[in-house]
């Protein structure tokens, strides 16, 4: 049987890649994809914990996080479309209108 630590390390790796993607990538579409990666890494560790603790709560929680993440990305893409229509760009560094 695969031990718990393997699942947690995989989840940590995915989480770190996601956070790095959000912080470092220029394109907002890739930033939104990285956010999805973060949520999926969390789902993985939740299910792993639920399995090893023999508890239902974690599995139920995963259903909630999947639903919420979908709603969030739907709104995110809609806002992205509004930004693109207005600014004709999807690059993070060009969105700096309010610095002053």
């Amino acid at each position: 049987m695969i031990p718990l630590s393997h699942y947690l390390l995989l989840s940590l790796a995915l989480f770190s890649i996601g956070v790095a993607g959000v912080l470092l990538r220029r394109s907002i579409i890739i930033v939104l994809m990285s956010l999805e990666l973060i949520f999926n890494s969390i789902n993985l560790s939740l299910v792993a914990f639920a399995h090893f603790l023999q508890s239902m709560t974690g599995r139920v929680f995963v259903v909630f996080t999947i639903t919420v993440a979908a709603a969030e990305v739907a709104v995110g893409l809609a806002i992205l479309v509004a930004v693109y229509r207005r600014r004709k760009t999807v690059y993070v560094e060009e969105l700096n209108e309010m610095k002053h």
Binding site: E72, I79, M98
Partner: peptide, 17 residues
């Protein structure tokens, strides 16, 4: 207003993170 959509996008990305 481009400031407002920009604000919304930044809010969403930091909020989701």
């Amino acid at each position: 207003e481009s400031a407002s959509v920009e604000a919304g996008l930044k809010y969403l990305v930091t909020g989701a993170l």
